[in-house]
């Protein structure tokens, strides 16, 4: 039997679809990790990004931090944290949050910065307070780019959570790591395909959100 038909066979098995090791359960786990991680990262990065974008302060530091994290190998980070903290969710989630913060931070501050300074100046001259400028001018106008940051962070986390299976994290990566350990290529391939589809769907969802936020005004402007 070829690998392809074995993989189709794997997908058609009922055990693939039920129980703790079934696709629905793994999918929910994977989405759960993603939501949790992006959520925590957003709590840190969104206020900080808004502050940096609005005031221009700390931006050098943010750029340096972003660059430094980018150079860190994700697998190294995951395994290191796992040995430091031990088994459980803490190590992988911490590593995932660390990796999700930079794209999110960059998205938020570049979104705010992308707003024409003359528009901001005019809003200030009309008598808007700094908070009003942020919430009524900078965030709505930069929203598409801010969502772009959430989009990259989500993709980063979906991909890295897959790798996290190596240090015992659940989710769809389990199929790849477990399949590898038992030389079950069809299972690895099946799991990989599910991850790819998930990534494409999530990316598509963010893309739609982004295009909804770039309303009439921006289209005409460019």
């Amino acid at each position: 039997m070829s690998v392809l038909s074995e993989t189709i066979d794997w997908f058609s098995r009922s055990s693939t679809w039920s129980g703790n090791d079934g696709i629905p359960h793994r999918l929910v786990e994977h989405l759960g990790y993603t939501a949790l991680t992006v959520g925590i990262a957003a709590v840190v990065a969104v206020p900080l990004g808004l502050y940096i974008g609005h005031t221009g302060r700390l931006r050098g530091l943010a750029v340096a931090f972003t660059g430094a994290v980018r150079a860190l190998p994700t697998l190294g980070l995951l395994t290191w944290f796992a040995l430091l903290v031990g088994l459980g969710l803490t190590a992988p989630i911490t590593a995932l949050v660390l990796l999700a913060v930079p794209p999110l931070l960059a998205g938020v501050y570049s979104g705010v910065e992308s707003v024409d300074q003359r528009t901001v100046d005019a809003a200030r001259a009309q008598g808007m307070t700094e908070i009003q400028i942020l919430t009524r001018v900078e965030v709505p106008l930069g929203l598409s780019i801010i969502l772009g940051g959430l989009r990259s962070a989500t993709l980063q986390v979906v991909a890295t959570a897959t790798v996290g299976a190596f240090i015992g994290l659940g989710g769809l990566g389990r199929y790849i790591i477990d399949g590898q350990r038992s030389s079950d290529y069809p299972q690895m391939l099946g799991g990989s395909l599910v991850v790819v589809v998930l990534a494409l769907l999530l990316d598509g969802a963010w893309a739609i959100a982004q295009s909804l936020t770039s309303g009439r005004h921006t289209r005409v402007l460019v």
Binding site: R118, A123, A125, Q126, L141, H217
Partner: peptide, 15 residues
């Protein structure tokens, strides 16, 4: 808020 201000390029809110 108590003083009118008009600038070059109008400075209108595009959204």
């Amino acid at each position: 808020r108590s003083i009118g201000y008009v600038m070059q390029h109008a400075g209108l809110l595009p959204h």
